[in-house]
Design a protein around this nucleic acid. Structure first.
Lengths: 345, 345
DNA sequence: GCTTGGCACTCCGTATGCAGGAGTGCCAAG
DNA sequence: CTTGGCACTCCTGCATACGGAGTGCCAAGC
């Protein structure tokens, strides 16, 4: 329904408006782009584009600005994602290289994303439920209190105290420890409840209650999805850069971005790391963020994604560049958090 | 040098300006406060106060605004700190009560402080170096790799991997574990390096290198002050509320507040929990935060403070209320993080 | 000597009017 | 279908004018 030139006009409008933050008129368009037609022709095309809802006029006799629908079409027609420059790749590598633990990886990722995209960056912590158990340890604190430590493949450490009625002898403890590890190591968390059920059977009556308490705590620790909800955010200073006329909306934005729940909603379902999700304006599943777009993608080793990261910015953003950055960062973090990654000492 | 009425006039100016965010004139002052003198008299007092640098005029024929010096005098003359209402106390208690671990305590504290004061809240994590060791554990990962776990009195878990040349037998490992705990438990971190020095002497030649590696890692873990630098921040949405005319400065503020280093500088030296530090305007040790004041206090069990928390707000803030909130929150967090606190299961 | 009412003065904020400019829509010709 | 021309709309910036709020100072009163 739109011919090639109209698509070109729309693209030019989007690009110019993103660059200048000002409604773009027909004259400026033909001057800055190689359209090879006159302003009048462009005006006709614009009239059609406006009729179809891809662009709009702030007021009569102003230039045009893209609507959400216009941005959507623009993004959908993007074929090649701009590759990162060598310098940018280096920046990504050096910034993420020195991370000392999981927290540090996430913090650095947020910062990097914010710097690269000059938007607000959001990174979800690798979800416990999707990572695997690397090691389970039982530590004797007192005769009747153990400390349970579960270490996951992504370097996360879950700890729980277990109060036990009957003290466990060293042998029994070693036995229990070995069985727990046998049942859990290498498996995804939250996937091993069944294996643990029979575990207490191997122990004598007296110890039974203690073992049961331990197992119950293990189950709780590995099926507790509290950790799934952790989110890091950064680059909020970029909100101030969102463009003039946005001053009024920075407060609701900041408020929204302080709510973990909202952030998780924005990040949405974790997708395959190679898939970018772009939600534009009204497509964003949170009504208080008017005029905002969200670009997200999953990250994690291989095809199974651990969590989601992305950015929030004004609908008026440089989509090609932003998408490229988000993708590049997600890929790099994925490689860093590959299953065999361990925090360097 | 200033008589009682002039102090009263200054206080009235501060209170009105804080409430209205508008320069306050002589007429409004006598109407809203019980000064029992005429506007003309107030004007004379104002002239003196201005001459002494406590108040200023944005321009001729405008009302007066307190200067940093004026706020300083106002704060210094505050004697009674407004006590918290019962409802507020309940709010504090219920909000902090449900915390499940250290991270959660800090996160909730930030949120609480931000809500109570309606300012930007900053909370430093309890410093490793000031807490004590509760337990040290060595976990065998592989024959040549151990996991070292140090648990502190505040619930923080430090973990390190140790690569060892010679595998350790279970007996030796148990021995080493026992000695480490004997040397460290109950002591402040970073205070036990000396005790550890001779520890390797008790082991045979072959094991010596492995033990030395473990000890080195322990020393590193307990003297690593990286953890000291962790800071949580919240309530940045309140920046937007700082008052009209602050729009321009919200970006540099947000930028400053994303820098851990800056935040630590703002929090300053940890003080005794019962001492409130108030820095006003130019007294703030960071030049980019113009027009901002910082209210901080230490927190921690008893008199030894673990870390610092506080708020950042416009110089034009309700000092009595803010100071009361900061103090109340610090006290409550101190009681929660008392030395015998452990994360509830 | 401090306090007070009066009064002239200053300055800000807002409203008003006007000119310039950018951009459009439409039309008729190529 | 494209193009140049033209009238029209609406925003923006600028200058001007005006009312209001507040001050500083002075002279009178307690």
């Amino acid at each position: 329904m739109l011919d090639d030139r109209k698509h070109a006009v729309l693209r030019a409008i989007v690009e110019d408006f993103v660059a200048t933050n000002e409604p773009v008129g027909s004259r400026a368009l033909v001057e800055r782009h190689d359209l090879r037609v006159s302003p009048a022709t462009v005006r006709n095309d614009m009239a059609v584009l406006e009729e179809e809802g891809f662009i709009a006029q702030p007021h009569t006799s102003a230039g045009r600005i893209p609507t959400d629908k216009g941005y959507r079409l623009f993004v959908d027609r993007l074929t090649t994602v701009k590759p990162m420059s060598a310098a940018e790749k280096r920046a990504i590598a050096t910034l993420l290289e020195g991370a000392v633990d999981l927290d540090d990886v996430v913090r650095r990722t947020v910062r990097l994303l914010a710097q690269l995209t000059r938007q607000v960056a959001i990174v979800q912590y690798p979800t416990v439920s999707r990572s695997t158990v690397r090691h389970v340890e039982l530590v004797v604190m007192t005769a009747h209190r153990l400390l349970l430590v579960v270490i996951t493949s992504t370097g996360r450490v879950e700890q729980r105290y277990v109060d036990i009625a009957e003290a466990l002898a060293d042998d029994d403890l070693g036995d229990l420890r070995a069985r727990l590890n046998a049942a859990l190591v290498g498996r995804p968390l939250g996937d091993s409840a069944a294996e643990l059920e029979d575990l207490a059977d191997g122990f004598d009556g007296e110890l039974r209650s203690s073992v049961t308490a331990v197992v119950a705590t293990v189950v709780e620790a590995i099926s507790d999805h509290r950790g799934d909800e952790r989110v890091a955010i950064g680059g909020t200073a970029n909100l101030a850069r969102f463009g003039e006329g946005f001053e009024a909306s920075v407060k609701p934005m900041l408020e929204a971005l302080e709510e973990q729940v909202v952030l998780l909603k924005l990040l949405g379902e974790a997708t395959n790391p190679s898939t970018l999700t772009v939600r534009i304006g009204h497509e964003v599943p949170y009504e208080d963020l008017t005029g905002a777009s969200v670009v997200t993608t999953g990250y994690g080793s291989g095809s199974k994604s651990l969590a989601t990261l992305g950015i929030v910015g004004p609908t008026r953003m440089d989509y090609p560049a932003t998408m490229a950055s988000v993708r590049a960062v997600a890929r790099y973090v994925s490689s860093i958090l590959a299953d065999d990654w361990q925090p360097p000492r």
